[in-house]
């Protein structure tokens, strides 16, 4: 029963992953990826990691991918142009991928551990305990990382109007300007 369920989830994930790569439309890729994240969340639930599953959906599906979709829509990327790829290196990439998979497979296929008795560990209490005691420093460091990312993206994404520097915190204006630009792009397309 569980194995059947797993196989369903796994095939869905693989299909979604293939779709991410195979789709020519970026937005379709993005939605395939969201689907994949959903499948993984389910997989996490089968692994008793409820908190991680919820966070997976909230952070990945709910926040990161929304950002992706937002940018795709903002830049109005309709379709990837089809063009013969002349980069010689890419010939190797698929065999290399196969090789990588082969290696991982051979490395892991016989990986077995003795079953360890004990309660499931994915509770929010356990994770909270871990994050705020033993791994407090990494946790705090990630908060600094996030802060840096915020500052960095604001600096990168904002546009200076003819040399005079606009208020950094007005990032909604950036969005507005970008949208105006996007409609301009659309007009030129038409």
């Amino acid at each position: 029963m569980e194995k059947v369920f797993f196989i369903i989830i796994a095939s869905l994930s693989v299909a979604a992953a293939l779709s991410v790569v195979a789709q020519r439309n970026t937005l379709y890729s993005a939605f395939s990826l969201i689907g994949l994240f959903g499948c993984l969340a389910v997989a996490y639930i089968t692994l008793q990691a409820h908190l991680i599953a919820a966070i997976q959906v909230i952070v990945y599906a709910g926040a990161i991918m929304v950002l992706f979709v937002f940018v795709i829509m903002l830049l109005n990327i309709r379709e990837e142009e089809l063009r013969v790829d002349r980069n010689r290196l890419l010939i190797f990439s698929v065999p290399l991928g196969g090789l990588l998979f082969g290696l991982i497979y051979f490395g892991l296929k016989n990986f077995k551990i003795d079953e360890i008795k004990g309660a499931p560990v994915g509770t929010s209490e356990a994770i909270g305990q871990g994050l705020f005691s033993k791994y407090l420093l990494p946790f705090e460091v990630t908060s600094i990382l996030i802060l840096l990312a915020i500052v960095g993206s604001v600096v990168l994404a904002r546009r200076e109007k003819d040399g005079d520097i606009e208020d950094i915190e007005d990032d909604e204006q950036v969005v507005k300007v970008s949208m105006a630009e996007k409609s301009k792009v659309e007009e030129t397309k038409e």
Binding site: H50, A54, A63
Partner: peptide, 23 residues
């Protein structure tokens, strides 16, 4: 046992419908 988070997770997915519709 993480019901609250599940609610948030699901509501945060709702945005896709709107965004997709718009696009």
């Amino acid at each position: 046992n993480v019901g609250l988070l599940v609610v948030f997770a699901l509501t945060s997915l709702g945005v896709y419908g709107i965004a997709l519709a718009g696009w």
